[in-house]
Amino acid sequence: MKTTISEIFSSIQGEGKLIGRRQVFVRFTGCNLNCNYCDTPLSRDPDYGDEFEIDTLHQKIDELITPDFHSVSFTGGEPLLHADFIKNFLEKYPLPSMLETNGSLPGELVKLTELVDCVSMDVKLPEHEAVSNWDDLLDQEIKSIKILIEKGINSYCKLVVQPSTTTETVAFIASRIKDEIPDNHKISLVVQPASPLDMWAGKTHKLLEISEKAGEHLDVLTIPQVHKLLNLR
């Protein structure tokens, strides 16, 4: 089995709840969404990158593992477009792993629930212009969240916000998620201010307002892209 990967590299995780952890990043090509804030636009091209087989990918990862290695991050693009490849890889090489996904493909996510250790799910806003029907996308993302909770996977949601993002939109999304998940579960929402941070000059009060509104429904953390502050990939 082969698939196309745009890049493989070792760096510090700069987003979400595993921030600061050393990971080997495997960036798959192709994406089913078209977000206007995407910082890896080349990865959306399904033909960009090189073909890898399972064994050659493992060899490359193994070469990049350092003493502080925490896990492999399967990212993209959208890695769930390569779910069968990832499944076969982890069945043969059960490395600690993290999946970074947009959550729009719950049927593909199910294939990996027994294999990945952590999932970061990037919930989209209407203003991200990812798809023509945002309501349908949110429904699919919520299906994915429920799958992760039911399977007991260490997971959280991430929401990229811009200065133009309204607190009402964030509150609506947070309340929808809360209403759909079990009462005894409180999933975390990582609010990620879009980069570059210069765009937030004089507007950081907005992040406090967003956090407060989302916090009425979910556990909230506000974390910028630290790897960009450190000038790392």
Rank of each mutant, 00 (worst) to 15 (best):
P182V: 01
K151E: 14
Q140L: 13
P163N: 03
G152E: 03
I153E: 09
D179W: 03
T167C: 04
S155L: 10
S144P: 06
K151I: 06
I149M: 07
V161L: 02
D136L: 08
A171W: 05
K178F: 07
T167S: 11
I147K: 13
E150N: 14
I173H: 03
E141V: 05
L159D: 03
A171R: 10
F172P: 00
S175C: 07
T166R: 07
S155G: 10
V170G: 01
D136C: 00
I177R: 03
T165G: 00
E168D: 12
N154R: 12
L137K: 00
I147G: 10
T166K: 11
D139I: 12
A171D: 15
G152H: 11
I153N: 07
C157L: 15
T167E: 06
V170A: 01
T165D: 03
L137Q: 05
R176K: 13
S164F: 04
I177F: 05
E168T: 07
V170S: 00
V161Y: 01
I145F: 13
D136N: 09
I177V: 11
L148G: 10
S144D: 05
Y156E: 15
L138G: 01
L159G: 07
D135S: 11
A174N: 05
A171Y: 00
Q140C: 04
D179I: 04
K178E: 07
F172Q: 14
I177G: 09
V161A: 08
R176S: 15
I142D: 02
Q140Y: 11
I173T: 00
T166G: 12
K158L: 02
K146N: 08
T169E: 12
K178P: 01
K178W: 08
Q140T: 02
Q140M: 11
P182D: 12
D139Q: 15
D135R: 13
Y156W: 14
L138S: 06
L159W: 03
V170R: 03
L159M: 14
V160S: 08
E150C: 12
A171N: 11
S164P: 00
Y156V: 10
N154M: 12
